[in-house]
Simulated scan of single mutants.
Amino acid sequence: MKALYLKELTELDGVSGDEGRVRDFIKEKIESKVDSVKVDVLGNLIAFKKGTKSNRKFLLAAHMDEVGFMVTNVEDDGTLSFAPVGGVDPRVVVGKHVRIKGEVPGVIGYKAIHLQKRNEILESPKYENLRINIGASSKDEATQKVEIGDYVSFATDFRCENSRATGKAFDDRAGCAVLMEIIERSERFEDDIYFAFLVQEETGLRGSAVLFEQLQPNLALVIEGTTAGDDPGLPEHQWATHLGDGPAITFMHRGYVVNKKIYESILQVAQKYDIKHQPKRRTAGGTDAARLAKTGGGVPAGVISVPARYIHSPLSVIDVDDFKNTVSLVGKILEEGEGFAR
């Protein structure tokens, strides 16, 4: 199995509220392989594949958006002030390459270390003291290229060495790529399958808020890119997940305790087909499953994630085998048909 589309998806820019490039790419690749495709009023892309029995509606969801920034002012010297869109630690952005509105290159700058006072060195930089340099020497020159409200994305190329891949936006382009791999399969499943590629997850789970009224699914799986805990200096008992140990199965996270029947059913399928997997051992963070559970009549939802080191940063790391095992696990769950989570 090849990791189809993973490179292309991660290199596309799609900060929350500006997912159009990602949506257009996905739509182009999948529309001939499903029964219908639509874009709703918020910008969610929803594809449908009819089942052989059609007794249940099964929703698979992944979000298209990534964390990033927005230009808040063009300064007199031609630099840009900016604010984060989603949760981005200012400590990881200094000196990084970015793109404004998908085309204008820039670099995030901060005061040089030898000019900083001791307290500045010890403190995290604040966004109000950071600037994006785009090569302009004046406000007039800069405003010929950018304006207030333009989106800013990290400019990071995808690379793969052995079984490890690096890139931006694995949260959650990895999930989008999983759904696309499932769509690539020619077979139909027992359940009616809705594939939802969602907007604005990083700014409040907004895309998933409008799904229930449109689809009224019977159950759902949210496919995510989640934090890996095997970072340098972090003790093992604090690890959430570990690269190379397979997809992470969530039992609880912020705002949602996963439906027990779905959680146990996911584990049973993984064990039945000997698919490497791991529990997500920390409960920090949230997903669209929380919104699905408390919108409209509510949807019992599970969460399966591809572990990624350094998410919400310019460069993350995943294990490609974890991604492939996530595809396998989701595929086997769908093959189980009506027997899953009964």
Rank of each mutant, 00 (worst) to 15 (best):
H277A: 04
D40Y: 01
K50Q: 12
G95A: 12
E123K: 15
A62K: 01
I26V: 14
L130P: 00
P125A: 06
E11L: 05
K260Q: 14
A209T: 14
E190D: 10
S138K: 08
C176E: 01
E8A: 10
Y194D: 05
G95M: 13
F340Y: 01
N218H: 14
V71L: 05
P125F: 02
D192F: 00
E201D: 14
I311V: 14
V85P: 00
V107E: 02
S163N: 15
A293Y: 06
F154K: 00
K53E: 11
K53P: 03
E184N: 15
F197R: 08
E335Q: 15
Y263P: 05
Q144A: 13
I108L: 03
V199I: 11
E120M: 07
S328Y: 09
A165N: 02
L315N: 13
F212E: 12
D13K: 10
Y256A: 09
R342E: 14
E184H: 11
V258K: 04
E123P: 02
L122H: 09
Y127V: 07
I134F: 06
A174W: 01
G102L: 01
I113K: 04
D245K: 15
L4A: 14
L315Y: 09
A174G: 12
A341W: 03
V41D: 08
R118V: 11
Y273V: 11
R342A: 14
S328E: 15
F212K: 11
S186F: 06
S305I: 03
G233A: 04
L219T: 05
E336F: 07
S328K: 15
K96N: 09
V210A: 10
T227H: 09
V15A: 03
K272Y: 03
A169K: 03
G255E: 05
R21N: 11
E224A: 03
G20P: 02
R118Q: 14
S137P: 00
R281P: 04
R164W: 13
S305H: 06
G285Q: 00
R91N: 13
S316N: 11
L221H: 01
D245A: 13
R99L: 13
D18Y: 15
I249Y: 07
F189A: 04
N162A: 12
G286Q: 04
T10S: 12
E103Y: 08
D230G: 12
E11A: 04
K111I: 10
G51S: 08
I311M: 15
G109R: 13
S163A: 11
H242M: 13
L59G: 05
V88E: 01
K101M: 10
D18N: 15
G102W: 01
V94D: 04
L221G: 01
D18G: 10
R164C: 10
E31F: 10
A136Y: 05
A301W: 03
L315R: 14
V269S: 02
I26A: 06
A284C: 07
R254F: 08
D140N: 14
R164F: 15
Y263M: 13
I311N: 09
T250S: 11
I311T: 09
G337V: 04
T52P: 00
D319I: 03
R173W: 00
F69H: 03
K96E: 12
K145V: 07
F158P: 08
L215R: 08
M70Y: 04
K126Q: 13
V93D: 00
N55F: 13
E213Q: 14
S163H: 12
I266D: 01
D89N: 14
D274L: 06
V146C: 05
P232T: 05
I262N: 02
